[in-house]
Design a binder for these strands. Structure first.
Lengths: 332, 332
DNA sequence: TTGTAGGCGTTATCAA
DNA sequence: TTGATAACGCCTACAA
């Protein structure tokens, strides 16, 4: 591999000059610039990014920690982020945290030890305190789907209260009065918020929230399946079921079939997230759109702006959900 | 950040010694080793991976190029790879090629310019020649789902002929005689192989392959939808449809519904890949399992073995597909 | 506008 | 078993 030194020799200039034309900032005369670029071409010179990083104390790499690399939710998020960064010559180092405190911490440690200039974190298990402490460190980070008041300017969020509200409102507008609900784990803020929005809509329609119709799931398909089974066994009747995410909704759909319910006639089901397979299930799932791709892009812009001092479109931290009406809710 | 220099001073030894205990290979006396580790702890020393990379000419990073970061196929692949590497302290730099020749090349260039020690490539658009030339370069790489005879030892493949055969055989065994087929783009080897296996099974049952019942799709959902529409319009009847991947199968299912066909009674549909949403569609899709997660792991092991000279489980390049029977094929 | 020289934090090669 | 010391390839004052 040719080095800057060989280029300088061939071009008959100094190291510094070559470096200058590479980072084409300083003032170099057109003549020498041409000589240098010609020499570079001739040698097939490629800068060594590691040496650049060491000398400039900037690795041009940003770390991304997600819970899972697979699954319908994280793909669009990573995609938005990768796209933004590649155009800027930054690269993405990816790690998975698996929603486990120890593994999330390890992942963050790992990313930091790799000299990432900045981090994008989608963490669930790690504590607020840990993140607040982390924020005092030298590696800046932005949080997706997590709110910590002390760090509010770096939290990119979906308005989940509104999302929960929109979902319930739509179901209510279709004439349903007895609505079951499968929530996420209620120690998670997003799960709590969605449920709160749900209750707001109910109140608006002068309906009480029936605790008997609540099942606490864990955002995974199996708990949706289990949830409907349990709800079906108790005595309070219901004509609609709202799930706090699409995976659980799909689990509930399978459960409904096993219970012999025809969808959506005998039971209306609503999801949340609008992951891509909601179009594929039958009946197609009515849900709430979570603009995760855009939020990923925004996180990348945050890093570009705060870590690399780049110009970006205006930063936005709060995103709004939207109702996506398909065929899983019947008129009552 | 503490450096090796400060550690050496505090421990009262030389730089070299500190470096030795870090890479705990050379022979260092227990006494000095303890002194050094104590000093490290006291200073909270963390090695600078960039400096290590520069000095050792090894970045401990491996590049992964996939077509898309989203979608059901690549998630499990990335997941298998990330997992293997993190345990080994290697990190994954991810780029997307979007099945476009220029962007794939750019991605590869990008990864190489980032000093990746090795590459895992899932490329579709780039030519054999390009890859052969690339193989002469200094960055080793392994290919997933691509066969080039000159590079056969680094091609990790699924036996697609057998997969196509298994799919068709199962349908035939259910008594179907007139089977339509929606293929992938036939310039792609995997699409060709799956179709070839299909024809083999047909021949075994003494049936002719009917060209009228072939529609060439592009592996995307929309072409499955379009494909069934077109096949339905022509005059040759069929009772089953085999699609060369799950996405097209799902598109075809939607098409079938729009055509008023009840599934699977009036039309049996078979997929390929066994992506996770095949369990969610209705009726659940019978398909062929593509062990992409394992193949990702294997690619990672290949890199570990060939690039980092690590001990790994025995390397395997050819993987076998398996039939996954669910509910989308009816007995004829 | 250009060149000189020191530094970035390690590893690795010699000697001792 | 240890310690000097020269790389590694580039950036960046500072000087010319």
């Amino acid at each position: 591999m040719a080095t800057i030194y060989e280029v300088s020799k061939l071009a008959g200039v100094s190291l510094a000059t070559v470096s200058r034309v590479m980072n084409n900032n300083a003032n170099v005369s057109d003549a020498t610039r041409k000589k240098v670029t010609a020499a570079m071409d001739e040698l097939g010179y490629r800068p060594n990014s590691i040496a650049q990083s060491l000398a400039s104390n900037c690795s041009n790499s940003v770390g991304l920690l997600v819970s899972e690399l697979q699954g319908p939710f994280y793909g669009p998020m990573m995609s938005g982020i990768e796209n933004t960064f590649r155009n800027q010559g930054k690269h993405l180092i990816i790690a998975a945290g698996h929603s486990d405190e120890e593994r999330e911490k390890q992942g963050i440690e790992f990313l930091i030890s790799r000299n990432c200039d900045g981090l994008i974190l989608h963490v669930e298990a790690v504590s607020d305190d840990y993140l607040i402490k982390l924020s005092k460190g030298r590696t800046p980070f932005v949080l997706i789907n997590r709110y910590i008041s002390e760090l509010s300017d770096r939290c990119i969020l979906l308005n989940n209260i509104k999302g929960g509200y929109l979902a319930a409102k739509h179901v209510l507008e279709q004439g349903h009065k007895n609505i079951a609900y499968i929530s996420g784990p209620l120690w998670k803020q997003d799960a709590k918020d969605r449920l709160e929005g749900h209750k707001q809509a109910l109140a608006e329609f002068n309906l009480e929230f029936d605790e008997n119709l609540l099942f606490q799931g864990d955002f995974m398909e199996a708990s949706g399946y289990e949830g409907l089974k349990v709800l079906h066994q108790q005595t309070h009747p219901f004509t609609a079921l709202i799930c706090a995410n699409d995976e659980m909704a799909v689990g509930a759909m399978a459960s409904a079939r096993d219970l012999g319910l025809t969808l959506p006639k005998q039971l209306s089901i609503m999801g949340y997230d609008n992951v891509f397979f909601t179009r594929h299930v039958y009946p197609q799932l009515t849900t709430v759109n979570y603009p995760i791709n855009e939020m990923g892009r925004m996180a990348a812009d945050w890093v570009l702006s705060h870590v690399y001092q780049k110009q970006t479109p205006p930063l936005q931290t709060l995103f709004e959900p939207e109702l996506v009406i398909r065929h899983s809710i019947s008129r009552q």
